[in-house]
Write a protein that binds this DNA or RNA. Structure first.
Lengths: 193, 193
DNA sequence: GGGTAAAACATGCAGACTGTATGTATCTAG
DNA sequence: CTAGATACATACAGTCTGCATGTTTTACCC
């Protein structure tokens, strides 16, 4: 045949297709209720392909999750104007985070299922590499600028990150986005010293 | 045999034994990695008994979870002295919550797996009936007393509840309990108007 | 207190899923 | 062009969940 496809592009296409199908199904049904036969059927391939490219079902989930986290982090970075004060940057970032999380099913995927499927610490590590890193740097900058008091940074990052997640989940549960944003901003502003 | 046992006590004993075994295994291994054969083996009965008393595996999990949430709520209520101001009561409650959550595996069970297994809203409803109710009332009282500003209560409750959870999870992940408490108290104190 | 209905439990079975082992086609490199 | 590696398909073993069907124990009524 004349349609020779190099192995590397073949691989990346297959991995992409599997992750696309998996992402859609995970967003709709969640991880547990999505079976590998369903995923490969939606992608038009067989389970052999899946298990050739991913060690197991959770490895596929991990891949999906990392792409998702990157997209969220991108939207946050895009929302932060460089000339603002650290605390105002946090405020902007909070709004962008809530907005980015309003993609249907995304809160369940990233905030509910990821820790359950991968374990709390591995899931936190993914967040650590993306949105949470921005949060921690923001807090550090705010403290160096004297905008917030002397609170242990690791703990404060964890607590605030969870507060952001709570706001996003509340929105997904029907709380008006405006109210959730008001609440998060009240918490951030409260840190001001 | 002379050891006739009335059905109601038989039922409550069996349900209790199953929930005890399940709780231990869930705390150790998590929900997904705990099989019903394991649970009934630890309880010294068969799967028939389990499926006679519980509709399915998640119903058993629900029972375990409700008992756990009650115990946590009890410890919080016990820590709040009635004569304190609303905001100080919140501070005491926060400490008690973090302490109550330090039972090994409890954060994973209640904060990680419960939303994943039961869904975010049903899990929140359980919390709503226990610890979260106290939080909301505390916030309402603090606002009526003029201690905190005018922030939408539902949203603020959700955000703060998540912040508490984040503190408890951070402790389970190795953050010093003292640091986590400091961070949570900083957030609570920040609400003071 | 005997006997029937109902509840409590045990056993056996069907369907589905995950992960792996093995087979075949396609690509790569010398 | 050919040997070997890589990509994928097919087939299989083991395990799990939920249900259906048995057996035993308790409840109730005459």
């Amino acid at each position: 045949m004349s349609d020779r496809i190099p192995n590397d592009v073949r691989t990346s296409r297959m991995r992409g297709a599997l992750m696309d199908s998996a992402r859609n199904l995970f967003l709709e049904q969640g991880f547990a209720k999505t079976s590998t036969p369903q995923i490969v059927k939606a992608a038009g391939v067989t389970r052999g392909a899946l298990y050739h490219h991913f060690a197991d079902k959770t490895a596929l989930f991990l891949g999906v999750l990392e792409r998702e986290a990157e997209n969220v982090a991108l939207r946050i970075d895009g929302a932060i104007r460089p000339e603002t004060t650290p605390l105002d940057a946090l405020r902007d970032g909070a709004g962008a985070y809530i907005a980015a999380m309003s993609v249907p099913g995304r809160t369940r995927l990233m905030l509910i299922e990821a820790p359950a499927v991968l374990g709390a610490e591995p899931a936190a590590r993914i967040d650590e590499d993306h949105a949470r890193a921005a949060l921690r740097e923001g807090l550090e900058a705010a403290r160096k600028a004297g905008q917030i008091g002397d609170v242990p940074l690791d703990a404060l990052t964890a607590v605030l990150s969870a507060a952001f997640d709570g706001a996003a989940l509340a929105v997904a549960d029907g709380v008006p986005k405006k109210d959730a944003t008001t609440a998060i901003l009240a918490v951030i502003d409260g840190l001001r010293s």
